[in-house]
């Protein structure tokens, strides 16, 4: 554990809490892509099947929180606050993300076993899981500030992991090429959003895309 990973994990946790609180407090999931949230639930489920392999208390606890929170979010969007779900704008074709991620996991993995292929699938899937949400923001041309904070925290987490991987490579000689390449792809997808967040949201303006 190093500072980059710890702050990355906390940023990830913060993102999940921000989203749950936003939906709960406003009793609405307007502007949130249910499809991205389903993809995240799939990501955590397929990645944390290794839960019985004990690494640390911290690790186990965080995994349980991420799985539980992702299902709670999906429940709030598709059941409890279903009436507020903006499905007309949530039209990204997720099969174009799920199928290629799965095929790639079958082809490029560390070990051809069920658990390992599913872990690899979850890494590829996570790198693109935010696309339905970003697509929704670009389609409506705007995002509430709280949604922007959520996206910023979520995007920062993988960027911080990249620093963690550089640190681990130099100090422990440890590296995982699959995670690194997917993590870079994931972070790059947020770059456009990061730019808008820094130039607009942090200056008190609403995140609005030029018409």
């Amino acid at each position: 554990m190093n500072i980059f990973r710890l702050v990355g994990d906390l940023s990830h946790l913060l993102a999940i809490i921000i989203l749950l609180l936003k939906i709960w407090k406003t009793r609405s999931c307007a502007g949130i892509s249910g499809k991205s949230q389903i993809l995240f639930a799939i990501v955590y489920t397929s990645r944390y099947l290794d839960l019985p392999n004990f690494v640390s208390m911290y690790n186990t606890l965080m995994k349980i929180v991420f799985i539980a929170a992702s299902y709670a979010t999906v429940y709030l969007i598709y059941m409890k606050f279903k009436a507020t779900y903006d499905h007309n704008h949530d039209t990204f074709r997720v099969e174009f993300l799920v199928l290629p991620s799965f095929v790639l996991a079958l082809l490029i993995n560390h070990d051809f076993t069920v658990l390992e292929v599913l872990w690899t699938f979850s890494i590829y899937m996570e790198s693109v899981a935010i696309l339905p949400q970003l697509f929704m923001v670009s389609k409506t041309g705007e995002a509430e500030s709280i949604t922007s904070h959520y996206l910023f925290a979520l995007g920062s987490y993988r960027a911080l992991y990249i620093l963690n991987w550089i640190y681990r490579y130099t100090t422990e000689d440890h590296y995982d090429l699959i995670a690194i390449v997917a993590g870079i792809v994931q972070t790059v997808l947020y770059c456009d959003f990061f730019y808008l967040y820094i130039t607009k949201v942090l200056k008190g303006k609403k995140l609005q895309l030029p018409a």
Binding site: D50, V55, N59, M62, D111, E116, W119, N164, D176, A179
Partner: peptide, 10 residues
């Protein structure tokens, strides 16, 4: 030989 890849990150 059992080769298990360990993933210690989240």
């Amino acid at each position: 030989i059992e080769s298990v890849v360990t993933h210690d990150e989240l």
